[in-house]
Amino acid sequence: MLALNNIEVIYDGIILVLKGASLNVREGGITTLLGANGAGKSTTLKAISGLLRSERGEVTKGSIEFHGERVDRLPPHEIVRRGIVQVFEGRRVFEHLTAEENLIAGAHVVSDVRRVREGIERVYEYFPRLKERRAVQAGYLSGGEQQMLVIGRALMSRPRVMLLDEPSLGLAPMLVEEIFGIVQRLNREEELTVLLVEQNATLALTIAEHGYVMENGRIVLEGSADALRENADIKEFYLGLTEVGARKSYRDVKHYKRRKRWLS
């Protein structure tokens, strides 16, 4: 449904960030994009949502297609209208707006006021805590509440695809579990397609059914989540496990350092 074909992204006309990345997001599924810092994961999401241009980046080669239509030349508001919405990493709420005003702002592309109301109620159903805090300035919400708010806000545009950038960043493990649970529910109950970018590979691979691994602006590995979980390289580099499956101990730090096979 959403396909990136061999795209290349250049920032400022000179910095090559994505070097021909291709990936396919399956309708109704959760696809995850893993990779280390600076691999180009967030850039990939911004290329899809059309927000690259606000950072002086540009898709210079390849194409992005959504339901067979090329969307890589469209401005961001047109992409939201087509049903793709991005949730930034780092809980970027509108700080000076109340929680509810954040939701209203999220429904900007929905013109029918009644549907905006419904949307707000729907978000409150998924995130009851936001309802209690609806009149609070979003800047004063706790980290977990802010993460819920940005996901809820993105839901307000009635998206088909949600691009979710590191929802676990800086949150307590219990909250992360809660939020991932809700993402799974949204995927099942609202038939929301999710492209999840994560550093926390263990978690991402438990809720996703398909995954891609990105390094240095290229997709280096792809497969079903189960296959990726069993992949020795993934275990070593992203899950922190040695080949036997035991957790690595700092007592034997002088272990044989595995080479990333996909780099050779």
Binding site: S49, L51, S54, E55, P75, P76, H77, V80, R81, V85, Q86, F88, R92, F94, E95, H96, L97, E101, N102, A105, G106, H108, V109, R153, A154, S157
Partner: peptide, 16 residues
Amino acid sequence: RAVADSQQVAMAMGVN
């Protein structure tokens, strides 16, 4: 006001 808070996030919400 959302635009004033963050132009980029407002763009991501479909605000022109």
